[in-house]
């Protein structure tokens, strides 16, 4: 059987590459390669050789110009050595080939600021939404309940009935749209895959700390209309085993954490559709 391959991009302040690669392997990928951006820009590693791209958490360029802004600029303008092509062309080719991208936290910020999400009408390079400073004005590390939209096209959340419980760790996670029309279309097309909610996963909430950042419509995760591109502020790679749960010493929990489902779904999709 052909191998299914995941890539995790690191460098310039990305921090979660090890656990993201671990989650990909646990989820069923035969290979999960951690590639430094320098290795991609030098042409040593090509996105074309992979099926699933992970843009994961961290502080790209220190979030100095606003989270992920400098990396979005770099990806759009930097060229790949020896190829004459810009890196952004590898990205659009990857998307065009029907492959999967998951952006987590800083990776979600990057996708949004590059314009990969919400990706209306096949346009992956126009920014329509943003993620900005939490209403509380502070970085927060806490666990959140995320209600899933069962009608969402996201391939990552297939089979998750009510919701998932994950840690969030960010200072800039407040989701905002450029216009009411964008927000309305996101909701209409069920692109807001995950929303902050109470422990019963019943209703979305704006209440702190359940909604830790004041995101519009409590949106924590977003996908494109194909469902193959998704970003979320909380960290699914940080809950793949029960010992990562904050209350594992007092609750009966299954071996696998809630976040692993996203990687299992990704692997399954790739196996079915891309190899």
């Amino acid at each position: 059987m052909k191998k299914i391959r995941a890539i995790v991009i690191t460098g310039n302040g990305t921090n979660c590459e090890t656990e993201a690669a671990h989650a990909c392997r646990l989820g069923g990928f035969d290979e999960a390669v951690i590639a430094h951006i320098a290795e991609i820009l030098s042409g040593e590693v090509r996105l074309d050789d992979f099926h699933f791209l992970n843009l994961t958490g961290g502080f790209l360029d220190g979030d100095d110009l606003g989270s992920a802004k400098a990396q979005a600029n770099r990806l759009k303008h930097a060229g790949v050595a020896g190829t004459g092509e810009k890196l952004v062309e590898q990205f659009t080719r990857f998307i065009g080939a029907g492959k999967l991208i998951l952006g987590v936290c800083n990776g979600f910020q990057l996708m949004v600021k590059m314009g990969m999400l919400p990706g209306f009408d096949g346009d992956f390079l126009t920014q329509r939404t943003t993620l900005t400073f939490n209403d509380c004005g502070r970085f927060q590390d806490r666990w959140v309940y995320l209600k899933t939209d069962a009608a969402s096209p996201s391939v990552f959340t297939t089979g998750i009935e009510q919701g998932i419980y994950l840690p969030m760790r960010h200072g800039e996670g407040k989701f905002l749209c450029d216009s009411p029309a964008t927000l309305e279309r996101i909701e209409r097309e069920h692109l807001a895959v995950l929303k902050y909610s109470g422990p019963d996963y019943e209703a979305a909430t704006m209440e702190f700390p359940l909604n830790p950042n004041g995101a519009q419509n409590a949106i924590a995760g977003l996908c494109d209309p194909t469902g193959r591109l998704m970003g979320l502020m909380p960290h699914p790679e940080a809950f793949v085993h029960y010992t990562q749960h904050p209350r594992w010493t007092r609750e009966e929990l299954p071996e696998e954490g809630d976040g692993l489902k996203l990687y299992r779904n990704a692997a399954e999709y790739v196996r079915k559709n891309l190899v």
Binding site: T18, E19, G57, R138, F139, Q140, D141, E237, Q244
Partner: peptide, 16 residues
């Protein structure tokens, strides 16, 4: 809570 205590994914007993 302002300090990321879970990055790298290995936390077993957290500050809280």
């Amino acid at each position: 809570r302002r300090y990321d205590h879970e990055v790298q994914g290995g936390s077993v007993v957290k500050p809280f």
